[in-house]
Design a protein around this nucleic acid. Structure first.
Lengths: 172, 172
DNA sequence: ACAGCCATGTAACTTGTTACATGATTTT
DNA sequence: AAAATCATGTAACAAGTTACATGGCTGT
């Protein structure tokens, strides 16, 4: 959230309400999925940290708004974020932990777990591909969806390999 | 962390020091990468939440240790975690935000960004594949590494597609 | 004597997240 | 008159993270 808002402000100054709307659109979130308060909390924390500054703007026939923009320190922070090459790589690890826990505790059947996970990923894949068809093929969003799709396919392939190994092991 | 520790305790009761060691091994972390304090913080919070309970065990010629085990509520929580099918799917989104920020602010060159990201992922891929060769091919860890490898390859392919589009767009 | 392992924790800070509160204006 | 939109925030808790503190035992 912190970085997301900073990156939006890097593009141009904006006030909280505006940022919230852009986020809801950009992330394709359902209306209630992003609590408005969170944007304001984040902005005030960024201000306290000296990464953004606000100007109050009075509006005739509308509530005042506070437009935030990056400070020099803020721009530096964005630069650092841009050149940070870490890539989140947690999903398979977490699922693997679940499988191990399931197998050792017998609270759940690992094979069934893999199976429902695969179905869930297939559902997501169909959804992503449907969205990609609606998108104009040259748009920014299309590329994003293509990435999601490739990754989902890789994860599904992995689950299939995994399941086969589990079944082989069981039949021994 | 919370869920990781719960899942380890689901397997068998353990004390903090032991959990820390298992984690360092299981996650293949460098020694200092996991602050010991964090395990204890997490454990005490889990205890406060009533998900685990501790028994103190005196040891001759060693400091006492506190062995934690799951309560009924804790087992329920693990069950819920096991059957939760969400799958983290954030990485491409975050990188995409970075690219957009880079393009609109000109704080960094998007093409260069994609390029260094690709190199970084290639480095990771080589590392993962080297680890996979050291692992006995039937072991649990080998499958995990296979998953990591498949996913990295998918991400790399996506970056290549992305880069091509960017270059095409530039030459127009 | 000193390093390193065994073993535990606290204080303090940051970030994510939610529930709730406020109030004006515009549309139905 | 009610509902939606514009616009802002606070209080409070949960979770991640680090720096720091403590102390005994074991091997060289």
């Amino acid at each position: 959230m912190r970085d997301v808002i900073l990156s939006l402000l890097a593009k141009e100054p904006a006030h909280g309400y505006e940022l919230r709307q852009r986020l809801v659109r950009a992330l394709g979130l359902a209306g209630g999925a992003l609590n408005p308060g969170q944007v304001y909390v984040t902005l005030s924390r960024l201000e306290r940290a000296g990464l953004v500054e606000a100007r109050e703007i009075a509006q005739p026939s509308h509530p005042d708004k506070k437009v935030y923009e990056l400070t020099a320190a803020g721009r530096e922070r964005v630069m650092g974020w841009l050149t940070d090459l870490t890539w989140s790589k947690v999903a398979p690890l977490e699922f693997h932990l679940k499988l191990v826990a399931a197998a050792t505790t017998r609270l759940a059947d690992p094979v069934a777990l893999v199976d429902s996970q695969r179905l869930e990923l297939l559902r997501q894949l169909r959804r992503v591909q449907a969205l990609a068809l609606e998108e104009p093929p040259d748009a920014d969003g299309a590329l994003l969806l293509e990435g999601a799709s490739l990754r989902l396919q890789a994860d599904i392939r992995w689950l299939e390999v995994y399941q086969q190994r589990l079944v082989e092991r069981e039949s021994r």
